[in-house]
Each structure stands twice: as C-alpha cells, then as structure tokens.
Design a protein around this nucleic acid. Structure first.
Lengths: 131, 131
DNA sequence: GACTCATACATGTAGTTTACACTTATATGC
DNA sequence: GCATATAAGTGTAAACTACATGTATGAGTC
C-alpha cells in the first residue's frame, strides 16, 4: 500500500480506465491485441504489461465482453481479432455511467481541497463553523 | 483482471482517492485513526478494511507523509493522533495535480465516448475520415 | 468484580493481482 | 543461417486485499 511516488493516472492513466478504453476502441472496428496495446500506449497508458494485457483480453472474452477470431490474412504471425459484443457494449455504457459519477466525486474532492487550502492559509477565518 | 461488475468508485469511491482524502482530512486538524475511518466512511468510502487501514496509516507514517503521537488525555484506549507533515502536504499537492490531469483524461474519455457513439449510430458518416 | 459493550489499534493469512522475466511462433531482410 | 519485428502467450515471486482474529482500555450494569 501507499506508493513511493504519487502515480494516479497520467503516463499510465489509472488502470480503471483501461477496460473502458479497450471496449471503446473495439467499439469502432475490430482490432487485434498487439495493435490495441499500441493504441492504448498512444492514448496515455504508458507501459502496459504485455503478459497481463493478453491475459486480461482472454478474461474479457471469457466474460463475453469481447469476442475474437484468428486473422491469418496478413503476413506475420496470426492475429487474434477482437470485437466488442452486445454484452460488452452494455457493459461499456454502465461503466461510462459509473465514470460520470466518479467525475463528480473528483469534483467534490477538489472543492474540499480548495476549501481546506483556504483553511490552511487562514485557519482562524471561521466562516461555516457552525458549532 | 477484468471485474464481474463495473465498479469504478461510488459507494466506495475508488481507492486511489483514499490516500489524498486522508491527507486532506489531516491537513485540517490532527485526527486519530478510528475517527478518520469514520470520516472517510461519511465521505463515501463505504467499507474500509480496518486492518488494512491501520497498516496503511503506519505505511504513510513510515514514508513521512504523516506523523503520529499517542494521545492518552481522553478516556478509553490510547489514540494515535495523526498529523500531516510538510512532506505529506507536498505529496498532497502533487497528488492533486495528478488528479487534475486525470480529470482531463476522463474528460477526453467522454469526448471519445460520445464521438464513438455517433460512429456507432452512423458508421458511414465519414466526417473526419482523413485517409 | 465479573460481564458486556464500544472504542482503538493491531496481527495473521488465504486468495488474488501485478510486475517482470521468459517462451513460442511467423515473416522479412541481410 | 541469423537477427529483428511482430504477435500471442506462460510462469512466478512479491505485493496487495479482504476477512477473521487478537489485544487492550474504559464505561455501564447487575
């Protein structure tokens, strides 16, 4: 617990956004894992562990959020082409709702943060001291 | 990986907000662990594991973000009174900056989400198709 | 004064997750 | 043949989490 450096998101944007982003990218067009990883890297998920990434994709498939088929049409090793399922689409929508709520929570944090910052600067300014 | 239900934050607001909230609460006035836990509960962190909570507090102390002293003045078992350190204050500020960036990423997600939703609805409307 | 209850802090640990290293396989260029 | 890039995957020690349990103090009560 409690990390050495603050690492909330950026440069590795909070992993709770990883799944929704994956589903979002697949919503558009079927993509294979390797490329998906690179797209995610471009978005801002700095370093995603390859091993865990593929494991996660298989898990998402197991849970029916995505489905896959082998694509041997192009050169190089066979690609597993992932697509978003109907279940995944619904999941994404639910997730988006939750993220929206999370946005509100973040907003609330910053309101408190500024308020406390004022307090920090002016501890004896007792506006709102209702006791 | 990949959770059974979408559970981003609410009702147990994403644990990545736990540490900043703790520091935020301590910024105001020294508080002891037990009360801190209840304050966090009131904020929206539904169920925090007590064991892990205390372990985390000791960890935060080890990393010099907070410091503690025993308070035996009041009745009942001795309380460990936590205060925010200068290091903790700086950490909180850094964390807040990161959270702000995270907010931007979230915003970006929703922009992409709506855009993709349009695509999903009108796949052959090729505005912005620059290839 | 033994018993129960609430407060306060802490440890033990099974089960899961993560980070990091490693493996397999195909095609291309030299 | 051999290095390199692509593509997907396995193995596993260390870290983290959830849940159960332990220790201790004081207050009320019968």
């Amino acid at each position: 617990m409690a990390q050495e450096k603050p690492q909330v998101g950026v440069g590795g944007a909070g992993k709770e956004l990883l799944v929704p982003y994956i589903l979002l990218l697949l919503r558009n067009v079927p993509v294979h894992g390797y490329e998906l990883m690179h797209q995610l890297g471009a978005i801002g998920f700095g370093t995603i562990d390859q091993g865990n990434f593929y494991r996660m994709m298989r898990q998402l498939e197991k849970e029916s959020y995505v489905c896959s088929e082998w694509d041997t049409s192009s050169s190089g090793p066979a690609k597993r082409l992932y697509s978003l399922t109907e279940v995944g689409e619904q999941y994404l929508q639910t997730y988006a709702d939750q993220l929206q709520k999370y946005q509100d929570i973040l907003k609330q944090f910053f309101e408190m943060y500024s308020k406390m910052f004022d307090f920090y600067l002016f501890p004896f300014n007792n506006e709102g001291d209702e006791k």
